[in-house]
Design a binder for these strands. Sequence first.
DNA 1: GTCTATACCTTGATAGAC
DNA 2: GTCTATCAAGGTATAGAC
Lengths: 193, 193
Amino acid sequence: MGTKGSANRQRIVQAADRLFYSRGYNQTSFSDISDETGIPRGNFYYYFKTKDDILDAVVASRLTFFKQVLDDCNCQSDDPKTRLKIFIATPLGQEEQVIKYGCPIGTLGSELVKDQDHLIAKEKLTVVFDLIKSWMVEQFMRISSADKAADYAMDLLAKMQGFTIIASVYKDVNYLHRATQSAQDWIDQLAVN
Amino acid sequence: MGTKGSANRQRIVQAADRLFYSRGYNQTSFSDISDETGIPRGNFYYYFKTKDDILDAVVASRLTFFKQVLDDCNCQSDDPKTRLKIFIATPLGQEEQVIKYGCPIGTLGSELVKDQDHLIAKEKLTVVFDLIKSWMVEQFMRISSADKAADYAMDLLAKMQGFTIIASVYKDVNYLHRATQSAQDWIDQLAVN
DNA sequence: GTCTATACCTTGATAGAC
DNA sequence: GTCTATCAAGGTATAGAC
């Protein structure tokens, strides 16, 4: 195993992932990551050239996380509607965190759109969105017509971003549950054609 | 007119408002505001005790902005459906900015949920959301039943947050237009009862 | 590979002259 | 009221010993 997979490097990425989520990228310092890993600040530069590189690694890590989530959805059912409803319920599995810090990719997106730099991270982040969107399109394609599937997928993506941000701003768990149910009902109600 | 309404104070708030929107609160420094206003850094503390106080003033400013927007909607039509559709189209009026920086209250909310401090600003920000939500409820009450009106309002609030964030992450103006139209269609299609 | 020490800059905030 | 000078703290990043 090369440098890229070293244990220390992994620990840095994992700690940064948590901190970027709970505090935001800009508000997370090397000292914060150092405190949580026990690895001294100066040592980071052996594994990463810049803070930006850590961000890139974190976004890559979130990509693999969502790949895993979608794989799990695929494994749990063959029915596209059931799969979509399982995915819609994903935020409920992280309920406490979602209320506190919002969506891990949505809030990072909000942060990065306001920044001139981080071009690679921004591109990688849209890859995460595209991954989810493509998977949704696949499912919707088996429910409705091909041209509607793309729109449905964007709608669902936006719907989930929407209720996540509202739930986190209002700190309203009940709303998170109601909105999840509502989105699932929307899936159920879709006509098969 | 007292200190609160002084010309310099207003210029600081206006510049901060723009910068907090385009760069984010945490990424905006006193130097940035100083550069845009021409007012020296050290002078800010005559008008505001802390950076947090500037944030409070900015959020208050956005509150009055949205009050104005809603008043305009009320003036343009008496029909609740028409009013809602006008409001839904608001982001299109700031199309370029929305694509670049997202929603002025949504992205600020995303930033502030990750912060322990800024308690007053966070409260004031939910007041902005509540203002919009209450207005929506009023309109929906004239369309459907009272118990459904509250849910519809939350749905619409989430819907708009959702398509705004997706449009800004993807930098997709066409999607912003399609999603706006879709939300307006949803209003039209609502049964009156 | 690991760690310490530190350079250099920018931050929010203060003190005090005018 | 306005401005300059400056503070202490914290930021990213680097140099170099071990």
